[in-house]
Amino acid sequence: MNDFAIQADKLTKRFDDFTAVDAITFDVKKGEIFGFVGANGAGKTTAMRILCGLSIPTSGTATVAGFDVYKEPEMIKKNIGYMSQKFSLYEDLTVMENITFYAGIYGLSDKEIKDRGAELLERLGISHEAKTFVRALPLGWRQKLSFSVAVIHQPKIVFLDEPTGGVDPVTRRQFWDLIYEASDRGITVFVTTHYMDEAEYCNRVSVMVDGRIDALDTPSNLKKQFNVDSMNKVFYQLAREAKRSGD
């Protein structure tokens, strides 16, 4: 495999006469924290589904972790982690049961599950909560646990779909500490967010507008390019030109 975790070339997805993703070309380097932002309806979710091996594109090419999105979606699924705010853990399973379940699905052995599970709980400082039902955990803990579970099989890439929505300001920042740690361990992080201050934490950010990637660079270069002092203003300038809206 080369130095890229993701390579996409003119990747396109059409639903009837609607072009949800319009010939996007970009790459994500190994170990990079890559921000994927855009207005509601810009095509982020559709693009992400393709990259996770859940949807076949209409045209263009893409590889994720070295695997082709047309021919090897099952290999992609094995090599990535996924977490979203909307779907994460089973509330009526305990913390350890959730870990065992997800690690099992990713094919970890019983020994690996035991070792990595214990290590994960210790790193999060919640070893004493192993037998607690997830629904009884504070939301912030749940989010952190959910992220840790998504990378328990040490995937090459983890996809995070608005991971911090609604989380309190302190937990939101602790969550980013986890993201940095994962990135330090060599895991590539692909993250969408509505919080533009979080876009500043990414190594590079792409901004989608109406299915296209209209800007892609480091946060500081984007701010220079648009002559503004925050990513929020970069986003605002790009997204208000959008012709379409909605999810």
């Binding site: 207005a39 509601n40 929505g165 509505h194 959008a242």
Partner: peptide, 10 residues
Amino acid sequence: TTGVDAVSRV
């Protein structure tokens, strides 16, 4: 405005 993008929030 939860889950709504920055432009629509404004």
